[in-house]
Design a protein around this nucleic acid. Structure first.
Lengths: 344, 344
DNA sequence: TTGAAAGCGCTAACAC
DNA sequence: GTGTTAGCGCTTTCAA
């Protein structure tokens, strides 16, 4: 049985489809009587408006598309949650796609959202992404884009087609700067940083903040203290061990994500060194269980939920006509726990 | 600038819209020449098919709706990931909604998906949900439903409108039975269970498995060993303390979710008792950091990704015409770690 | 092998 | 205050 349409209601009432449509929209041209009658009948017949038919005219679905680079992390769940909250208040549904850190899949995701004529897109690009035509194409279709967490490089489109998109990112430079400062204040002088292999702008910024803080405090930046590792336990443990084996062993390590952080903890423990006495640890992480490790782990947290909300608000602004791109930087929260606190 | 439509291509080529449409669909009635020409032009003009227009005719969008009761957990991220994977292989997008454990929001979510004419819905009901008319309404619209992780009670719809939906759930009875058995094998005799306040079928089943295992081993089921707590750290710590203060203190606790488990760990540690020597612990949890707690925590894990995949497969079957409901039960995985292993 | 035309459900411009 | 009509982009009879 097909769902009730305006036509069905019109037929039942001996009215025209147009009248019914107007009545349902509270159009002032319609008499109280008719309006009441129509409303009543619509309810009786279990009518619900067909969004698709509507969208065919308006050209867009009341839906916001989201593309994240991977799904199963607290960080992106929380970003999504923030987006979903704002979107649903504004009457939009959220469609959720996953690029699995693959550029090809990201391209396909964008295409599919475009075909669905979503009202706008919020995206966090993959680590592979270094060309942006797939997003550029959206401009012709008037589909606004906001980048969240991972921004694209400045002005990736050479003139004359130079334009750019809004973004919401964490304050990575400041976050790393503050973490480094904190370690210095704790008396650390040989501070290492454990990075993933990523070319993401965000990672560059964190490294930058680290180096700045060392400079500001007249500490030497030693290349051998900047370690790179693949983002899995085994590789990260190896990378940490390499750091610990240096002639001048670091007395602190900053880990750029949670896997690296947890690996560093394991490696230091296994090597028989004490945390934080021999090696202080702090890491970028949104995992709540850092509290349950012994010792509890100092972290820099993103305000992921707020980032999602903010991104969605910007997108809604764009949907409502805002043209100029806006860049919002969300502060991080540094939580000092046992792993980086020297009792003195 | 509006996106290219069939009409645009037809105009450019001096063909009819119908011909262009057919060419693009590889309709054999069209000549090689024309087909080639159309394909070529479509590419040049950057044509992409308008899904909405299509759906207006077919009555449904190539989209699967998912409703989860909360967002920010690894469990549901992983379920979603499984769904998304299967869906995208079959050419469906996934729309993702969150009921926040509120019945009212769940009802609205269902309505919105219905209005969007999604091809099908996968849902995990809220703890409040005990009436199912909102799902029943979907049957008229031929929108199939699969319940995942949290099923609804058997046959909630009395005759003559008796029908039911497919489901994918964890094997809760067996999981709890096995965990209890394991503790008994470790020598525990006073086994307590720490429950949330939930009326979910799943929770009942877990309690059932626990009781069965006690029976099977001729152990008494003591009501005071069945503890209830709200699902937050503070309440759960209180509830655990109450257990520990019993005249005959339990020598093992089974926690029904991760919050309860982590709270139990804290409470036992704070009370100065040793894990597992004084109190063994095991819990239902999908959090990967149970490995990083001291002692490492024994857990029962759901195969969440597989549950998502399976649910999506069932749904696709229904979309393709499968009528009868199917119930799939996914085994859990028990991981024994230090917190429940007595060295003997 | 191709074209003309109807129709999916809805809204809005234009009558009356 | 209400009806008529056209049209959104596409597929699918029915004709030619």
């Amino acid at each position: 049985m097909k769902p009730t349409s305006l036509k069905d209601i019109a037929a039942r009432l001996g009215l025209s489809v147009a009248t019914v449509s107007r009545a349902l929209q509270d159009n002032p041209a319609i008499s109280q009587q008719t309006r009441q009658l129509v409303m009543q009948t619509a309810r009786e017949m279990n009518y619900s408006k067909n969004f698709i038919a509507n969208s065919l005219r308006s050209g867009q679905l009341p839906v916001i598309g989201v593309i994240v680079p991977h799904g199963v992390t607290l960080f992106y769940s929380s970003v999504l949650d923030g987006i979903e909250q704002e979107a649903s208040e504004a009457g939009y549904a959220v469609i959720n796609m996953n690029s699995h850190e693959s550029f090809e899949r990201e391209r396909r995701n964008v295409e599919n959202l475009q075909r669905l004529h979503v009202a706008g897109i919020i995206a966090s690009v993959t680590q592979e992404t270094n060309t942006f035509e797939h997003f550029a194409k959206l401009i012709d279709d008037h589909i606004p884009v906001v980048f969240v967490a991972r921004d694209i490089p400045e002005n990736p489109f050479p003139s004359p087609s130079a334009y750019h998109f809004s973004s919401v990112t964490a304050d990575s430079v400041e976050a790393a700067h503050r973490a480094t400062r904190h370690l210095i204040e704790q008396g650390c002088r040989r501070i290492a940083i454990l990075c993933g292999p990523s070319r993401l702008k965000m990672v560059q910024e964190r490294k930058h903040g680290y180096i700045e803080a060392l400079h500001d405090n007249r500490l030497l930046v030693r290349p051998e203290y900047v370690a790179y590792s693949d983002i899995d336990m085994a590789s990260a443990i190896d990378a940490t061990n390499a750091l610990l084996d240096l002639p001048e062993r670091p007395d602190a390590i900053i880990a750029l994500n949670d896997t690296l952080l947890f690996a560093a903890v394991k490696a230091v423990k296994l090597s028989g060194l004490r945390i934080p006495d021999d090696v202080a640890l702090i890491g970028f992480s949104d995992v709540e269980y850092v509290e349950d490790v012994t010792p509890t782990l100092s972290t820099i947290e993103d305000q992921s939920h707020l980032m999602g909300q903010t991104a969605c608000q910007l997108l809604l602004d764009h949907i409502r006509g805002q043209q100029l791109p806006i860049h919002r930087i969300i502060p991080t929260i540094q939580k000092i726990r046992e792993s980086s606190r020297k009792n003195s």
